[in-house]
Design a protein around this nucleic acid. Structure first.
Lengths: 151, 151
DNA sequence: CCTTTTCCTACTTGTTCGGTGGGGTTGTGG
DNA sequence: CCACAACCCCACCGAACAAGTAGGAAAAGG
């Protein structure tokens, strides 16, 4: 259950774009520097986000990237899916495509529940994260000090 | 956010062992056949679980594997961690080791919340899954028909 | 025309994934 | 004590993926 560098970078870039909403297009170089990401690598990620319809771009002189929709209408989950495919997969397949037998039968509902819960958390909008105003259900999860410790 | 084949197989093997609790040791070959897993590959996984203290084994004539603890006292999360390392990692690092700046600052709490929610779901015991009696909070997540559909 | 910046394709290097094969070691039954 | 059944412990393998890198073509603006 790892979040890839692509996904992490994509979300951070999207947050940067959300924050610079009214400052016109943002250059890839500026985002890369602002977040400490390899510029060329980020360019590829932004390209995927453009193909996925999340951002738009303009070349030349004072070009750059901007969000295709308001930051309130883009979820973190969408960004991750855009650059990394399905949010949760088991052995490369989406949960509903799996079949289990015997005592493992109710493993499928468990994976489904897992996916639903991941979806719920990552359903937050870029605006909420950028403004540091996460929904109450999410902050509730971070309240427990044990959530911040490694097992 | 993918569950590897190792993790999936490990949990299924553990469930098989949980179900055969009172039938004495279970041979790797039997588990492999029962779950449609490559026998040699499974052997490696069971080896990891033994080193992790989750199962015990006996060689020779009618040897095999059995759970080291009652199935009520082993969580799915433990099994996955045993064979695959940390449950949730971002770019290979555990969330508390990350540092974000600027508009991405509250991305860290989001990853923490994500991990907490994953932990909550996978905290179920092998006994609960094997008996198909998931806790109410988990089944509640599977109630929504949308949880079963791909986006 | 010249600069800037995005866009595209290809390549690299290292690691992981899923799996296989062979041989050693320990236990049981005859 | 001997054969056999199982676990145990490597070593290896091909394919895929991850995280970048490099170089240039194409558009926009001055």
């Amino acid at each position: 259950m790892r979040i890839s560098a692509r996904a992490d970078y994509a979300v951070r870039a999207a947050l940067q774009l959300a924050a610079a909403r009214d400052a016109g297009p943002l250059k890839a170089e500026a985002i890369a520097e602002g977040q400490g990401i390899s510029h060329k690598f980020l360019e590829g990620i932004l390209g995927d986000m453009r193909k996925g319809g999340l951002v738009q771009s303009q070349r030349g002189g004072n070009g750059g990237y901007w969000l295709a929709r308001p930051a309130e209408a883009i979820s973190v989950a969408e960004v991750i899916r855009c650059v990394d495919g399905p949010l949760v997969s088991v052995r490369g397949e989406r949960p509903p495509d799996l079949a289990y037998t015997g005592p493992a039968e109710s493993l499928l509902p468990l994976w489904i529940a897992l996916r639903a819960s991941v979806r719920a958390v990552l359903g937050v909008s870029l605006a909420e994260v950028a403004a540091a105003e996460l929904p109450a259900e999410i902050t509730a999860l971070t309240r427990d000090p044990e959530a911040w410790t490694n097992p």
